[in-house]
């Protein structure tokens, strides 16, 4: 009797993975390792880095500006992810249940295709207090000018709104792709049983979309924490650090004050937080298991 052992493909697999691994090591692994090393040094670009132990981290934990930037970032993430996910879910459902026009899908992606700096400039002009179109409209209906970027209470919601505008289409497409995986017969059955659209959304779409929704949430949460360009273009962290998010804080420390070591420590800290947040989210949403199976 001849027994055939299943062929071991692992060696071949590694061979195929090699090109990616090299890229990963050179462009991610090595810089990340260097970043971690810089975070325990006093590197300022012009000196030779010397080891200072946990000094940067101790300073970071006591730094008011750092904690403010964490708080500001959290506020941004809540505003941005909240509005973006809700809107995207609504749009995806509409696309799924009403129309499957390719034109419409392409249009949704348009804002996402525009570079962020352009978007920042565009909205900066539209929302300007004195010259902006939006304030002219407000004025026409008798409302006072709103300093969208210069008023402390408005600055962050404005930035979050701009990014929601830019990314909702993309998120909606991802969710729409997820909805396409849900078997059509479930909807047919439900509608024969007399369920309305809202009922079907709650009873079929949402539960079966969960793994995709979880993935989209994790990805957009990480992306949302990395908000930088819109702020760099519009508010530059102001007014009085009301929009000084963590990435802008790191940027200021690294490339304005040249505290590379300190900035690296903040970056490592941010990576840790993101890791923990992702783990919690994956856990809570049981992202690896689908109810379809």
């Amino acid at each position: 009797m001849i027994t055939t052992k299943p062929r071991d493909d692992r060696r071949a697999a590694w061979l195929f993975l090699l090109p990616v691994l090299v890229g990963f090591a050179v462009f991610y692994g090595y810089p990340a390792a260097r970043g971690v090393w810089y975070s325990v040094t006093d590197y300022n670009m012009l000196n030779t880095a010397t080891y200072v132990g946990a000094e940067n981290y101790a300073k970071l934990l006591a730094d008011e500006a750092f904690w403010n930037s964490m708080k500001v970032t959290a506020w941004y993430v809540v505003l941005n992810i909240g509005s973006q996910t809700l809107l995207a879910l609504g749009i995806a459902t509409l696309m799924h249940r009403l129309t499957r026009s390719v034109m419409l899908r392409a249009t949704l992606l348009l804002p996402w295709l525009v570079p962020n700096v352009t978007i920042g400039l565009l909205w900066m002009w539209l929302l300007d207090t004195n010259l902006g179109f939006v304030n002219q409209l407000l004025h026409a209906v008798g409302l006072g000018p709103v300093g969208f970027f210069t008023d402390e209470t408005w600055a962050m919601p404005t930035v979050a709104g701009i990014n929601t505008w830019a990314y909702t289409g993309y998120t909606a497409l991802l969710l729409y792709a997820g909805m396409l995986q849900i078997p059509q017969y479930l909807y047919e059955g439900a509608s024969i049983d007399g369920a309305g659209e809202w009922r079907m959304f709650r009873g079929i779409t949402l539960p079966l979309l969960r793994p995709v929704l979880a993935l989209v949430l994790v990805v957009s949460l990480i992306g949302s924490f990395q908000i930088f360009d819109t702020i760099a273009v519009t508010t530059k962290g102001g007014p009085v650090s009301a929009t000084q998010v963590i990435y802008y804080f790191i940027y200021l420390q690294a490339f304005k004050y040249f505290h590379l070591g300190y900035a690296a420590a903040a970056a490592v800290f941010l990576a840790l937080i993101l890791g923990v947040l992702t783990a919690i989210q994956m856990r809570l949403l049981r992202a690896s298991r689908s109810d379809l199976a």
Binding site: M124, T129, N130, L131, G147, T150, D151, E152, T235, P239
Partner: peptide
């Protein structure tokens, strides 16, 4: 003068040029 929370993000010379 415009209050800071109602100020423009644009440079002062664009505002002067716009007659504001």
């Amino acid at each position: 003068a415009p209050a800071l929370d109602k100020a423009s993000t644009l440079s002062r010379d664009s505002l002067l040029n716009a007659g504001k």
